[in-house]
Design a protein around this nucleic acid. Sequence first.
DNA 1: CATCAGGGCCCTG
DNA 2: CAGGGCCCTGAT
Length: 327
Amino acid sequence: MSISLVLPVLTQFELIPSAPFAFDATFFKPDHFPTPDHVWQPGVRWQTMRWGEKMLGLKFEQRGSVDAPVLGVSVWSSAALTQAQQADLARELTYRYNLDLDLSAFYQRFQADAHVAPLLTQFRGMRLMNPGSLYEYLMIAIVLQNATVRRTVAMMRTLMETYGTLLEFDGQTLFAFWLPEELAVVSEADLRTLKVGYRAKSFLRVSQAFAKGEIDEMALRSQPKETQRKALLGLYGVGPASVWYLLVDVFHHLDELNTISPWEQKIYSRLFFGTDPESPLGVETLREHILSHFSPYPMMAVHYVWEGLFWERRNGGAEWLAPLIRL
DNA sequence: CATCAGGGCCCTG
DNA sequence: CAGGGCCCTGAT
């Protein structure tokens, strides 16, 4: 099917995350939906990356300790990277993986919280992260809409196989995303043969907006949250649910929590009130509880609780979650 | 076999 | 601002 592109040139450097730093809990999120662009094992993550025109293969390795952390970064590429490109890349990775995040105020705020404190210990040094670009996250957000997880995985894989590029580096073979301008010129009919349904139009319109430069991720990063929200909502096929994920994961707004979807509503009800997921509390009640109880870091607190739940499930527990996830 | 909701969003009235 | 329609799929 796809011919893989071998990346021969290796560049290596190290980054120093702020301490404490939890490698595994940051570099692998068991609740993230699996895209065929990365692999994780304890202490190591392989990840493809589109960096401008470049196709990169990345390997992150855990070094040092939680309190004196070092992140090993290996980069495979077609051509050698200049010093400037390497510095650019290091900055971008630091942003995407939140390597500079200062967790101390958050930890102090919740050190005596009966619900959250044990998770601060379990995941000490964990951050939210998003490995990809805004554009790539938008593609993911669109396949997530109104579909079960099994179907989103199938749609993403077909899209990658059709429009992505298979990269080979360090013994791994993983897909890299396509660029917006590449998908922008595809016909809607072609996209629909991939069984993405009405989402075909959203992929196209969003890709066209990026190809025309109507959205600039780097410029948006320094804009106020409401400016970002407005820009994102302006994209065809992007509504409040997707924007919430984007504001938190891509733009790092840890105070953002406006939308609670039905499946999340059931899980929050059980997590925070112990209620039967089949008769959950109302979204208003849940939002007020989360915002007041976990202020001023509702999303960080929810993230710790949420990761606790999904790691538990990965380790064989939290059986009640299964029917709510609908794999 | 039909119907329906799903990890939403757009468009219409 | 409420509600129908939308691609497809698995559950019922």
